[in-house]
Nucleic acid binder design. Structure first.
Lengths: 151, 151
DNA sequence: GTGATTGCAAATTTTTTGCAAGATA
DNA sequence: TATCTTGCAAAAAATTTGCAATCAC
């Protein structure tokens, strides 16, 4: 329920963001955003796959790249890099930490406001001369622990 | 002086690390490591360039990739991700934070033991079920502030 | 209608791989 | 000498770009 509303409002918000930037609400852009809302984090090819699987809209990877890059430029997504050397995009703009699974190359969000505040307040009074801070990226890197031995 | 010693001992340490792993001390590997000690963080092509510029050893990018990847596998280097979508390697194995300059795509080390401890102790008593933490990566992303105007 | 946007294919860029030739222990 | 490594060139993988056709406004 909540999630459904959240998604709808997500799309509405998205449309008005597009309008605000004088960008057309093309089916491709909407499909990309819908996929991103479902996926959370994804690479261009994953998004393309997801769209082909679930939507009637057809898209090409090239367009998905362009769309994701443009939207990241507007701050609607965040570009992320993973250790498997692919570009990932992140739909969540709120502050959070990432848990990166280096085996499966997936990201999981960790919301830990306390920690973010801790770090920000620690860094807050530090100056990096000649450097304007845009973002702080915290990634916890690990792998699934095979606690089952035989699996 | 100190830096020279540090570099020499770096090379000696490196050689014994190679020996320990039954890897041969080829001129290419030594050249890569020397370049990495100078560069700190670098991508394969930067390392190749640096070697060609400064050393008599000649190398191919393919070999540099292989060497960097192998050494990262041994934990001698650390693989890093940058927003310009290239693989970077990091020669410093001690815990530190990175300042990533998104304009010039360069990294700078920040040593802030206090912050690392803060984060580790905060995360220390958190459990991520089924997940084994290998590393915590903190990146401060920003760009040079054109302080010319108003400062 | 008209300018923005997409699809397609080709070009770039980055990384990986196979195998013969060469170097190291 | 036996094996590990490198060089080279070609293959893969990932991303970007040009341009005509198409679509949203």
């Amino acid at each position: 329920m909540l999630s459904q509303n959240a998604k709808n409002s997500g799309i509405e918000q998205f449309k008005s963001a597009l309008r605000r930037h004088a960008m057309k609400a093309t089916p491709q852009r909407l499909a990309v955003h819908e996929a991103m809302l479902r996926l959370g984090h994804a690479s261009a090819d994953t998004v393309t796959e997801e769209i082909r699987k679930s939507a009637s809209t057809n898209v090409t990877v090239a367009s998905v790249y362009n769309i994701l890059t443009n939207l990241a430029g507007l701050g609607i997504y965040k570009r992320r890099m993973s250790a498997n050397n692919k570009m990932y995009f992140d739909v969540n703009t709120f502050k959070h930490i990432h848990l990166y699974d280096s085996e499966n190359h997936t990201f999981k969000d960790i919301i830990d406001e306390e920690l973010m505040l801790l770090i920000e307040s620690h860094l807050g009074h530090k100056k990096f001369r000649g450097f304007k801070i845009d973002d702080i990226d915290i990634q916890i890197i690990g792998h699934p622990s095979k606690s089952k031995k035989t699996l």
